[in-house]
Design a protein around this nucleic acid. Structure first.
Lengths: 219, 219
DNA sequence: TTTATTCTGTAACTTTTATCACAGAGCTTT
DNA sequence: AAAGCTCTGTGATAAAAGTTACAGAATAAA
């Protein structure tokens, strides 16, 4: 049985907007929500589902993605701790069903605010709209940029950008399949391009691991 | 010299949300804004620009698009009378520059609310955030769907969907180049696919005109 | 009616991406 | 150590899309 071992103070730490600017609203949210834990790989929602509520991500990573009829996937964006899964809010407000899917990349925890409570708080607190607004605005520009990349860039460019963005100290622990699912292509394409990069001395490959060589660092 | 021959009543007609639900806010907006006319083909803003203010579209059609280094374009969405050019608001709120371009498709007219006035009204009126929110939510789902289409659908499918969506009574007055710019490809590709559709008896082509044959209408 | 402009058609070709079909490498689990 | 996964590499092929390069048709302008 899951105990709600999560304090309001911790919530305010993760979402300083509530703690600092609007503790009253923050308290309302916390009071009306419940903590939900989830394992890695848990399908949090599926395209077409009705919206259950709005989640504040406390721990873990969540991937929001589209999936094609043939089963190919493309990641729209990812969410980390301290972020709001804005698609919920967006759906509730427009009264539509989810336009995408979400899955957890790691075990994690959300603070789940049920739909009716959310709508009540949106009415009550003007800042709530402000919060949702700013996150939504960011996502919109993210997804616009993604359209541009998918429409105009070649896969090798997109892959290299991805590697640089996702790497930490030039290292990436990831399978080729995962990259393919993020970029919206097939595993073979990624394997081939990576091998080509390796031949050109841009990186080295091993199972579950990509090591970028820092030859041409940005000055 | 442009005379402001545009009444608040007309504004309320076009944006009933203001007239009905919040005439006070509507009046504030109208008072702080100015009417701006523009010709067809006018570049309203360019990617990277700072945001000048938020526009309420009174007349005409506006296309929001991305453009590649090679000059190819893709339309993100279009805006009609009674709609808000939400990208402005989005930029202002997130304090970023425009993530896309906008151009007028026809002569038109906007009610332009300057940035500082907008931010003031956002503070003052909670409903303002609600309005922006709902439009933004819709655009986000639009653009997500676009990502899916670009990533997973073939051009012939996308073209046919486009033709069906854009046609009125099975007619489309449009050049192949315009279609190409909407779908993010080159004119030749569109010409070829259209000709192929014509050979298959799906439509007939003439200059600036596409006539769909209503053979397989949805029942 | 010329002339100029815009729009469309199309061949030929290249590039890019997707798909199929395996083989083998490298972990994990018995 | 043997068996069973998962992950990677790669050839062969096909399909889709982009590019180059013109020619000619339709319309508008002079």
């Amino acid at each position: 049985m899951q105990v709600k071992e999560f304090t309001k103070e911790r919530f305010f730490e993760l979402f300083p907007l509530f703690g600092k600017n609007s503790p009253e609203m923050g308290s309302d949210i916390f009071a009306a929500s419940k903590v939900v834990d989830f394992p890695a790989g848990k399908q949090l929602y599926t395209e077409g589902d009705a919206c259950a509520g709005i989640s504040f991500l406390l721990e873990g990573e969540v991937r929001v993605y589209k999936i094609s009829a043939g089963g190919r996937e493309i990641t729209l964006y990812e969410i980390g701790p301290g972020e709001t899964c804005i698609l919920n809010a967006s759906c509730l407000i427009s009264n539509i069903s989810y336009p995408a899917n979400a899955v957890s990349l790691s075990p994690g925890r959300i603070l789940l605010l049920p739909s009716d409570e959310f709508m009540r708080l949106v009415e009550k607190h003007g800042q709530m709209r402000g919060l949702v607004l700013s996150v939504l605005a960011k996502r919109l520009t993210d997804v616009m940029t993604l359209v541009e990349e998918v429409a105009f860039q070649r896969m090798d460019e997109r892959l290299m950008d991805y590697l640089i963005e996702k790497s930490e100290d030039g290292l990436l622990r990831v399978t080729h399949q995962k990259i393919a699912s993020d970029l919206g292509t097939s595993r073979e394409v990624i394997s081939r391009l990576l091998k080509e990069f390796e031949r050109q001395g841009e990186l080295s490959l091993s199972r579950n691991m990509i090591r970028l060589k820092e030859n041409d660092n940005p000055v």
